[in-house]
Amino acid sequence: MTTVAILSAMELRRSSALQTYVDQFREAGADEVTIITLGPLTHWREDDPKPLVLDAGVAARRRSRRPWNKAKAERLTLRGPRWRMARLLKSNAAARRIIDDADYVYVDQPAAVLGAWKLAQKRKSTPFVTSPTRVIRLLENQ
């Protein structure tokens, strides 16, 4: 059984781009597609896999006033999404299990790269790929 894990740094958005990739991976031969997202996403379809959300409380926090300079400060410091994602991945056992079970990992969005890179250092045999086309080719060639 071939499993593809999608590791996405998206949060608080609709999920249609990921849905396209889920369909394409399945079509290319993935038996199972699992998803990890940084924050909650909307508009999931019934047959989409249930995502593991690393930071489920982000929506509540964002309801508070967030001036642009605060958001920018976050991006430029260790509180930005790259670092937050890396920290959450490190501490989330369920997420690590999903990655361990995956044959291929699709890394969606540059903000997910740092976390993925740290995981990849310990899992040299599993391809962590940032291009969906390349995942499809790997699936087709297996």
Binding site: R82, V105, V107, P110, V113, L114, A116, W117, K118, A120, K124, P127, F128, V129, T130, S131, R134
Partner: peptide, 17 residues
């Protein structure tokens, strides 16, 4: 490079930009 395993430490930590 699209294979994260091939990324250098500098790229992972500095960020792509």
């Amino acid at each position: 490079e699209t294979d994260v395993r091939e990324f250098s430490r500098a790229r992972a930590y500095l960020g792509s930009r």
